[in-house]
Structure formats: C-alpha cells, structure tokens
C-alpha cells in the first residue's frame, strides 16, 4: 500500500494470531463477542476481555466486487468482499475461490488463510483470514 504504513512488518506480525486463527474477544461483563480483539469491549466499555476462537463457518449477508482497488493491486482486480455473520460476531473480509456468477447463490462460507498483500512497502507478504463458499454440506460441520 505504497508508503502509508501497511507495508510495516511489525504490524503484520503483531496481528498474526487474530488474523491467522480467527480469534475474537469475549467480554466477561456483557458477554458479547467482537472481532478483531480490541482494547475494550465496544458494547459496554469493559476492559475485562478473554480471547475466544470464532466459528469458522457463517452466513454471507452481503458481497461486492471492488473495482476501485487501492494501491498497485490492479492485477488482482476486482477484489471480492463479504459481510459474514458467524453467529457470535459479524466480520468484513475478502472472499476467495468463488466466481462472480456463483456469488448470488452463495449462502454459507468458511474461513481459510490466504495472501492479502505481496507488494507492501517493504516487500512484506501479508496473510489473513478470507472466506470461501462451503461447496459441500458436511454433516455436523461446525468447524
């Protein structure tokens, strides 16, 4: 992202646990869960939080193909984004492994770790959770 900070190696490194493992934070006071973990609960302000794994499958509430792609990522245009409801928390993340014509029929998605950036300011290759369609229903499959 061209010299405005996203090519920072320490930044990618310190986010590796929530970004690779899909863990959120649960508030010990109000019980609500948010992602990624913040310093205090965005709902009640409590600082008493615990890290919890999030469900790896969820419902796709909305999607878009972003053609006004930032930076020098023209080769990966368009980028597909989704609003995903994991039940305990909602997440905005990139979608992957899906064709544009399939998207209107995608109901359920699952988390995978994928590359987000490889042209950052310092040559950093950044990875994070993305979501892909659950193509086959697996019995009892709550990852």
């Amino acid at each position: 992202m061209n010299g405005v900070g996203a090519g920072s190696l320490p930044r990618w490194w310190r986010n590796r646990i929530p970004r690779y493992r899909l863990v959120g934070a649960k508030c010990k006071v109000c019980g609500r869960i948010h992602y990624p973990p913040r310093e205090a609960c965005p709902y009640c302000g409590s600082r008493d939080l615990e890290i919890v794994p999030l469900p790896r499958r969820g419902k796709l509430l909305s999607y878009t193909h972003v053609f006004s792609v930032p930076g020098d990522n023209r080769l990966s245009t368009p980028i597909i984004l989704g609003l995903v409801d994991l039940g305990s928390a909602k997440v905005i993340a990139e979608l992957t492994d899906v064709l544009p014509e399939e998207l209107p029929n995608v109901k359920e998605v699952e988390a995978v770790v994928r590359k987000v950036e490889e042209q950052g300011g310092n040559g950093v290759i950044g990875y994070a959770i993305k979501f892909r369609p659950v193509l086959q229903a697996t019995p009892g499959g709550q990852g």
């Binding site: 405005v4 986010n15 913040r38 006004s68 792609v69 990522n73 980028i79 990139e94 987000v116 994070a128």
Partner: peptide
Amino acid sequence: SGPTYSMLQLLHDAEAEAYYKIGHAGV
C-alpha cells in the same frame, strides 16, 4: 486514483475491515 483509494480506505478502521483492500467504496 489507486494510491488515493489506499489513502481513502484509511478513513475506515485500519485494524479491522481496512486490513483488506476495501478501497473507498467496498464497505
């Protein structure tokens, strides 16, 4: 426009959704 979209996406939360290439219009 590409680098400008990178800057505009920082109006969104850089620690959450703007971790991805959301641009100015994605959300």
